[in-house]
Write a protein that binds this DNA or RNA. Structure first.
Length: 288
DNA sequence: ACCCAGGCGGGCG
DNA sequence: CGCCCGCATGGG
């Protein structure tokens, strides 16, 4: 247990960083209190509580954290050290991107735990955000280890999830994805050292994670981006497909492979950030 | 009541 | 390889 604070440089919109369909959207608790914004979320090691007030991000931790590791967790999770001006220079390529950046100025791509991200985005397939959130929270409450001095629980490990029966996972809202989750939990605890993917390049790491049954092209890209911080990853879901076709291809249908090529040529090395702004802006504008 | 959801694997041509 | 289909379930 302890607390400290970080001074934020550059624009930082914590609310949209959490709400914008990234892993924290699926289990973090958050609220506006006056002019400050409060957040609490479970990790594999403890519980992190933050309060953003202007440029000051105060935080406290419980569980297996030291002052150093807690600071690293927060810095990494919200990509505090990202140079947003430099990122915006790369992705502000046209009027649509300009309006997206303007609407969500300071929204970060977050960088989350690999297992947490894999589990969350397997659940996301053919699902909606509210339901994904209910499922993830149920899984935390049912399988997570209690945290001393808190009523919260740790984010459950792959080793803990693999002990669940398919039926139990289905009862927790996983539906037909239950078998994928079980396989992922077994694969990630037996056959895959998830930490080894950090040092692989994007293509190799994506290929490795796609060995999990239930992880295809889109979910793999989400894991590459939201866990491993590989900024060339460009997850293409229905929203991204529609918004690209609408804005850049005059409404004409394009194949996913063509859209990947388009993104890598338009936002080289920063596709992930472009995707996050496209996604959240497209959803708010209900582009269908 | 009815439709749909940040896709995926499997089966087929 | 590309296309098409079914899929558990609950929120809107």
């Amino acid at each position: 247990m302890g607390s400290n604070s970080i001074r934020i440089n550059g624009p930082f919109d914590m609310k949209n960083s959490i709400e914008s369909g990234q892993p924290l959207a699926f289990h973090a608790e958050y609220s506006n209190k006056g002019k400050s914004f409060d957040t609490t979320y479970s990790t594999s090691k403890g519980v992190i509580t933050t309060r953003l007030n202007g440029k000051k991000l105060s935080y406290s931790w419980q569980g297996e954290y030291t002052a150093t590791s807690a600071r690293m967790e927060i810095t990494r999770r919200f990509r505090i050290n990202d140079n947003m001006q430099s990122i915006y220079e790369k992705i502000c390529t046209d009027d649509f991107m300009k309006s997206a950046i303007s609407a969500y100025n300071g929204m970060r791509v977050t960088q989350n735990d690999p297992w947490e991200t894999t589990l969350s985005f397997i659940l996301s397939q053919f699902n909606n955000i509210k339901r994904i959130r209910n499922s993830v929270k149920m899984l935390i409450n049912s399988y997570g280890t209690p945290v001393e001095g808190s009523d919260a629980k740790l984010f459950p490990s792959a080793e803990q999830i693999r002990e669940a029966s398919i039926k139990d996972l289905m009862r927790h809202g996983a539906g037909f994805r239950a078998k994928y989750i079980r396989h992922a939990a077994e694969f990630c605890s037996d056959n895959l050292d998830m930490n080894s993917l950090y040092k692989m390049d994007y293509g190799d790491a994506k290929e490795a994670i796609m060995e999990i049954n239930g992880v295809g092209d889109k979910v793999a890209d989400c894991v590459m981006l939201f866990a491993y911080g590989k900024m060339e990853a460009f997850p293409i879901d229905v929203w991204i497909k529609r918004v690209l076709e609408t804005i850049y291809f005059d409404g004409k249908k394009k194949k996913v492979t063509e859209l990947h090529e388009f993104a890598s040529e338009k936002w080289p090395g920063m596709e992930g950030y472009a995707q996050q702004y496209l996604f959240w802006h497209a959803r708010s504008m209900k582009i269908r």
